[in-house]
Amino acid sequence: MLLAMEWFERVARMRRWTRGGERDPNRVLLLLLALGELHRRGYAPLRYRDVEEPLGELLAEFGPAKPASPGYAFHQLAADGLWEVLTHQGVGSPGPDASTLRAYDAAGRLAPRFAKELMADAAVFTQIVRLLLQLNFEPGLHDDLRTAVGLPPEPAVPASVAAHVEGLLPRARPDVLLRQKVLVAYDCRCAFCGFEGWMGNSVVGLDAARLRWGAFDGYDDLSNALCLCTLHHRLLDRGVLSLTRSGAILVSRHFVGTTESARTLVDSLVGRRVAAPRAGFPGPHRTNVDWHARQVFRGPARTS
């Protein structure tokens, strides 16, 4: 476990660029892509020209609105001690420029000791993936990310391994009553579309959706949460939807939906006012609204 702890700690140190709460998941996404390749095909170098396109798609889909280039991630990940870049001249990156990486026919691979440890212990592999996801993305995106990079659903791991990882996660504990508080504050209705649904005495299809992500100091509090239906929660986390300080709903121009239901459920939200909570309950704080609009929303917003 001592060797495993070294890798857990290195992953935790690279977790994100924290200045101003800005997201910088570029190296994380490359590492997840490499772990997916290791899981499916075994240990082998990944040529830059082969991963440039899929990495670019991951950056566009799960990174901030202005992601760095694939070349930046390919070059920079080596600084974390988990990755190395190879050219015909030996180990060492020729730089972050994509055209240079292609010209040198650069390839990257997981650091040999790191890969050996991952292949030797499935529990360590599982917890490395979990740590990367927990420290950089909202839980609602984890399954999407696993699918995108070719990783299976998370299996159970020994409690001893899980305990080591728990100690590296953010200290703030989730509020298990947050959903209940949000439901009460918003009268059990989606703040975007007004949906409500019940099965017996249980509310169904409604979530407590955070604006500022838990991995980026987003607390489980009504000032950082909305009551949203499952669909609009997912679209909020993916950056299709956001809102302004004044409470106007934003819809990304990048969203494409050709059916009547897409027009009804998404396009019609453009400019609509988000529902306010009941009197006596706080609405979203402007700092959390601003963070989501800057760091998650895939702008620009539609105007009609």
Rank of each mutant, 00 (worst) to 15 (best):
E9F: 03
E9K: 14
D24T: 14
P25F: 12
L29W: 10
L32D: 08
L33R: 12
L35M: 11
H39E: 12
G42C: 01
Y43A: 06
Y48C: 10
R49D: 13
L55W: 10
L55E: 09
L59W: 11
E61A: 15
A68W: 10
A73Y: 05
H75G: 05
Q76A: 15
A78I: 10
L86N: 09
Q89H: 14
G90C: 04
G90P: 04
G90T: 07
P94E: 11
A98G: 11
S99L: 14
A103M: 12
A107N: 07
G108S: 13
P112V: 09
P112A: 07
F114C: 07
F114Q: 08
F114R: 10
K116A: 15
E117R: 15
D121C: 08
A122I: 10
T126C: 13
Q127I: 01
V129D: 09
L131A: 06
L132C: 14
L135S: 10
G140S: 06
H142V: 06
D143T: 10
D144W: 07
A148I: 08
V149E: 02
V149A: 03
L151W: 06
L151K: 09
V161T: 11
V161N: 01
H164I: 02
G167R: 09
A172E: 13
R179Y: 03
V182Q: 02
C188W: 00
R189E: 08
F195G: 00
F195P: 00
M199A: 08
D207L: 01
D207K: 03
D221Q: 09
D221S: 13
C227M: 05
L228C: 06
G239P: 11
T244E: 11
G247H: 10
F255W: 15
T259Y: 08
T259M: 08
E260M: 07
S261H: 13
A262H: 15
G271A: 11
G271W: 10
G271L: 10
R272Q: 15
R278C: 11
A279P: 07
G280E: 11
G283N: 05
T287D: 15
T287W: 07
D290F: 02
H292T: 07
R298N: 11
P300M: 06
